[in-house]
Design a protein around this nucleic acid. Structure first.
Length: 447
DNA sequence: AGTCGTTTGGA
DNA sequence: CCAAACGAC
């Protein structure tokens, strides 16, 4: 009997998209599903994501009847499980961050003659494979998008759900993390939840996506980011469903999926951009040190209702509408003059969908130092964004209880009210002034 | 995936 | 007088 180990990387890219098929094609009679909780895994650094991961692992464990979870270093634990199971191959599936790639190489070295097969990526097109005619990678989204579309991707795999190859049940794993209570209103975890949610959104909302996606008050985005991040659904599944639709909304959604693929490709090509400036000119800019204003931003007490609503939505749900992410990021970088890395770290702590490539490059786009970034002089107006994308203020009233009693559009500028709510803070900064300060600091860079 | 001050053209 | 369009940052 030949056995293969199916090693899920940091997330649970599931078998229906090719990983298990790839294992089947290599001919094993059984598959050991393995998840390694890395020694470096520290729940205090990612409280929201670790709470979600525990739910996800529990769901997976229940569904396949025994996920093998071990704690330790992958280069030690993967070979150990291979030896215990007398496996002849390891199929790895999941995210393509530079860190995952480096870790794979260490594991491959430790495995010796047992092949480590990169069974599937968590992207429609694997990072590092969309290339210009001269073989170099793209730095601008639009040409990447065209090339990515032209390249296409194979259809999603659906038939392997029939369990042509049995999972080798290992019994309940002692290392399975405990599912603990959390104050965060987390979305349901698991593949079935992901598929059900997608189906519903596709039927009811995708055709309106183009017109409504920027409106946090309507809450009409797909909220699929969490499922894509954790791999409980594959983008190829989404693309196949979208291809059957002719609406502008379906096309706009494909474009958003392509942004995710673009940033994964960028990170793959420039690993340093995960935690440093993609455009290193911006390292020299003058920044302030995080202080009380940073704490106010984190807690949603800046006195700018649209900004505070977003930050509080993130604390409550581990999720924030993308339009608001851009506005709060701009506020941190250009009104508070803090480095984007501080904000990106807070997002990674509090967002359940925090994905390294999307998060870091989304921030760098706003900060003007990323690939195909917004020019630095594009400064979001924290009030104007609210008026434009939350016209009636419903989003603000939902997330900022102090302002719930304020009727009309005055809710965007409570300091102009005759009687501003006493328990809501005054604006932390003068936006017009700080905007000019940001432009001044940028000018000081020269060139 | 922006904002702001200015200009322009129609009422 | 005001909105839409425009160009600069």
């Amino acid at each position: 009997m030949t056995v293969s180990v199916m090693w899920f990387r940091a997330d649970l890219r599931l078998a229906d998209q090719g990983a298990l098929r790839s294992a089947i094609e290599s001919g094993p009679d059984g598959v050991v599903p393995l998840f390694v909780l890395d020694d470096h895994f520290d729940p205090s650094n990612m409280p929201v994501r670790s709470a979600y991961l525990a739910r996800l692992l529990a769901d997976f464990d229940e569904r396949i009847g025994g996920l093998h979870v071990v704690r330790g270093r992958p280069e030690v634990e993967v070979p150990r499980v291979v030896e215990q199971a007398s496996a002849s191959s390891v199929h790895v599936t999941g995210g393509h961050t530079p860190y995952a790639m480096r870790r794979d190489r260490r594991v491959a070295d430790a495995l010796g003659d047992v092949p480590l097969v990169d069974a599937d990526s968590s992207y429609a097109v694997a990072p590092g494979t969309v290339r210009k005619g001269d073989g170099t990678s793209y730095k601008v989204f639009t040409p990447f998008f065209r090339s990515w579309q032209a390249q296409g991707s194979h259809p999603p795999v659906t038939a392997v759900r029939s369990h042509a190859v049995p999972w080798l049940r290992s019994g309940r794993s002692a290392a399975l993390p405990e599912v603990t209570e959390t104050d965060v209103d987390l979305p349901p975890a698991g593949e079935q939840a992901a598929r059900a949610h997608w189906r519903r959104w596709l039927d009811d909302h995708v055709d309106d996506y183009d017109g409504e996606r920027d409106r946090p008050d309507l809450d009409s985005t797909s909220r699929m980011s969490v499922h894509l991040k954790w791999g409980t659904i594959h983008p190829r599944t989404l693309l196949a469903d979208l291809a059957e639709r002719s609406s502008a909304g379906a096309r706009a959604y494909e474009r958003q999926l392509a942004f995710r693929e673009f940033y994964a490709d960028v990170l793959h090509e420039w690993p340093h951009s995960a935690f440093g400036y993609y455009n290193r000119d911006y390292e020299r800019m003058q920044y302030d040190e995080p202080a009380g204003d940073f704490e106010a931003w984190k807690e949603g007490r800046t006195g700018f209702p649209f900004i505070d609503a977003g930050m509080r939505q993130m604390l409550a749900q581990g999720w924030m509408h993308n339009r608001v992410r851009m506005a709060v990021a701009s506020f941190l970088v250009k009104d508070l003059h803090l480095e984007w890395t501080h904000g990106a770290r807070w997002f990674r702590e509090r967002l359940v969908d925090a994905d390294l490539a999307n998060n870091q490059h989304g921030w760098q786009w706003v900060a003007g130092c990323g690939t195909d970034a917004a020019p630095y002089f594009r400064v979001f107006n924290p009030v104007g964004q609210g008026k434009r994308f939350d016209p009636d203020g419903a989003y603000i009233r939902r997330w900022v209880p102090e302002l719930r009693g304020v009727e009309g559009r005055g809710v965007h500028e409570p300091w102009t009210l005759e009687e501003p709510p006493a328990d809501y803070p005054p604006p932390l900064v003068d936006h017009a002034q700080e905007r000019l300060e940001a432009l001044r600091r940028h000018d000081a860079l020269g060139g």
